[in-house]
């Protein structure tokens, strides 16, 4: 019932022609969301905790070689493969069109992670530590996840909630551009644009109608909320 009433449908557009692959978004995400610091050993096992990663593709061979970058975060699918498999309803769909993950419900079956075609869900295989006084950097706005819990990108829901609280206090809807996840906020090239897809005049909705748009693994029918814009190099014109 609430699905119909929310005036928001959060989404993101990532312009690959702007993206330089610099990695600012990755650190911004880790800083904002209390993402654990992973040792070399942990990453060698494929258990990196980053919620946002930049895929790098080599195309061609020397000297006609090219590189493309693809920032991959939770796509917040509307037909999300992760949601129906959770036995305890820790993974669910939120009225604003977001894929929620409730840490206090999660029992760590990892079904959702196995079912995600984008491999954006990360599992706390190890307890993560912030040796004192490094723990001072932990944000009080969100939970510090313990071992045995699945976690993933939330589109910085704590920021969305803060913006909604502000807006509610002033009795108005959230303005376009008022709320930005940490990654979009810091992106030097302004490659990431976040906003309300339900508002056809918002910047993100306008960009999502670009002829360069595509969705990741579109043929799987997951209907992601993240649109990508193709790089405009000569092979794409």
């Amino acid at each position: 019932m609430e699905k119909l009433t929310s005036p928001y449908k959060w989404g993101m557009v990532i312009d690959l022609d702007r993206c330089t692959g610099c990695g600012a978004c990755v650190v911004a995400c880790q800083a904002e969301n209390n993402v654990g610091i992973c040792e070399k050993q942990e990453i060698s096992e494929g258990r990196n905790m980053h919620w946002l990663r930049i895929e790098r593709f080599w195309v061609g061979e020397y000297p006609d070689v090219r590189v493309r970058f693809l920032p991959v975060l939770c796509q917040h699918c509307h037909d999300a493969p992760c949601e129906p498999v959770c036995p305890v309803y820790a993974s669910y769909h939120n009225p604003d069109g977001l894929n929620g993950q409730i840490y206090s419900r999660c029992v760590g079956t990892r079904y959702c992670g196995n079912n995600c075609p984008y491999a954006v869900r990360v599992f706390n295989f190890y307890p993560h530590e912030w040796p004192k006084p490094l723990d001072n950097q932990l944000s009080p706005d969100i939970t510090v996840r313990s071992r045995g819990v699945m976690e993933k990108c939330t589109f910085c829901v704590q920021r969305i909630r803060r913006a909604k609280e502000e807006a509610k206090g002033e009795d108005r809807p959230v303005r376009d551009g008022e709320v930005q996840p940490a990654c979009a906020q810091t992106c030097p090239a302004e490659a990431m644009v976040f906003g309300n897809l339900a508002d056809p005049r918002s910047r993100v909705a306008r960009l999502s109608r670009s002829p360069r748009r595509f969705k990741l693994l579109e043929h799987l029918g997951t209907h992601p909320s993240v649109y990508y814009l193709k790089g405009g190099g000569r092979e794409h014109v």
Binding site: N94, I102, R105, I142, V157, R161
Partner: peptide, 10 residues
């Protein structure tokens, strides 16, 4: 009021 899980649990 909202009964979305994310209203209270982040």
């Amino acid at each position: 009021a909202s009964i979305d899980c994310w209203t209270c649990h982040i």
